[in-house]
């Protein structure tokens, strides 16, 4: 089973990425530190989304709602009640989790495209509540002045803070996906009926997973507010819900690190393209089409196909 060799196979890539992430701020300019900070936050968002998509096999097109709830929880607590950032993170996870619990309760009754549409409709519901509730959320003005504490104010300290939180989050997510719970999710994805027949309460598992995913989306959102110094209702819109979908598909939804890799590519591209054109949606749309048509399994799918090296495949029960 787990001899040294497979341990190495399993962890060399994340370890290498972590080391690179540690060293990066010494080599690159402040602008790119910002970009990498964004990569980390959106990567956590996409990885949390992938819990529902890659592992449970349901496409959620409304995960930005929980991301937005997390961002607004932190924003409101910091701006209106002057809470310290550290206290806000767990509270954001809890509020996002509660949101996911209430809305997810209805979503997990459906499958496939109906699941996608209902998650999207609920996502828009959250968006419009935030958008219209001027007195509480600031409506389309958003919330400004979400300042992290003094010692995190500069780009590089905040980057290391994000890196710490995101790394911890990713490790927890990894343990969840490798637990019996995680394998039950894969079973649900691969054959829902059979999973039901062996006595597993599929809906309950799906709901629990949806809540966990929502909580980590909320955590990512909570990091976003102080990073950007502001939050806006756009964070919850369905366009924003499309980002983690694309990141997961681009990186490869059947590998644990796929969404993070997708985030690297997507965010990099964003930073690069917006440097010289305002037509980012046009470019990103074309990239999405090319990726879907040409490399359906994402980056990790291609790597696996070519057999260059074999990072452990987190997706397929059948292959293990």
């Amino acid at each position: 089973m787990d001899n040294k060799n497979t341990m190495f196979q399993r962890f060399w890539l994340p370890a290498a990425l972590f080391v690179v992430a540690l060293i990066l701020p010494f080599v690159i300019s402040e602008f790119w530190v910002h970009v990498f900070n964004e990569i980390l936050i959106l990567g956590l968002f996409a990885a949390a989304f992938n819990l529902v998509f890659g592992y449970m096999g349901q496409l959620s097109f409304g995960q930005a709602a929980y991301y937005g709830i997390g961002a607004y929880t932190t924003g409101l607590l910091m701006v209106k009640l002057h809470w310290p950032l550290f206290a806000c993170l767990p509270v954001s996870m809890i509020t996002a989790g509660i949101g996911a619990l209430i809305l997810g309760y209805f979503c997990v009754k459906l499958r496939g495209i109906y699941f996608a549409i209902l998650t999207m409709a609920f996502g828009q519901l959250v968006f419009f509540i935030i958008f219209q509730w001027y007195s509480f959320t600031g409506g389309d003005n958003g919330l400004q002045g979400i300042n992290p504490p003094e010692w995190l104010f500069k780009a590089i300290p905040y980057y290391y803070f994000s890196l710490t939180v995101v790394t911890i989050g990713m490790i927890i997510l990894y343990f969840i996906t490798e637990s019996p719970f995680g394998y039950t999710l894969r079973a649900i994805r691969d054959n829902t009926e059979r999973t039901e027949f062996i006595g597993i309460n599929v809906q309950r598992y799906m709901l629990i997973n949806f809540v966990i995913s929502g909580m980590f989306c909320g955590l990512a959102g909570a990091l976003w507010g102080p990073f950007n110094r502001s939050v806006a209702p756009d964070l919850c819109s369905w366009q924003h819900s499309g980002h983690p979908v694309f990141m997961a598909v681009m990186g490869g939804p059947h590998h644990f690190l796929g969404p993070m890799i997708g985030s690297v590519i997507f965010t990099f591209l964003n930073a690069f393209v917006t440097g010289f054109t305002e037509y980012w949606p046009l470019v990103s749309g074309m990239v999405i089409i090319i990726v879907v048509l040409v490399m359906p399994g994402g980056v990790f799918g291609i790597i696996k196909e070519k057999g260059y090296f074999c990072p452990r495949d987190a997706g397929d029960v059948k292959n293990e």
């Binding site: 496939g112 996608a116 366009q239 499309g242 979908v245 046009l282 749309g285 999405i288 879907v292 048509l293």
Partner: peptide, 25 residues
């Protein structure tokens, strides 16, 4: 035409991308 037999998320992503592209066009 190229995505008739593709999976749900791929079809959704393609039309989502079309919406982004046409919006900018």
């Amino acid at each position: 035409k190229r995505i008739y037999k593709r999976e749900l998320h791929e079809q959704l992503l393609i039309t989502y991308a079309m919406a982004l592209i046409f919006g900018d066009l």
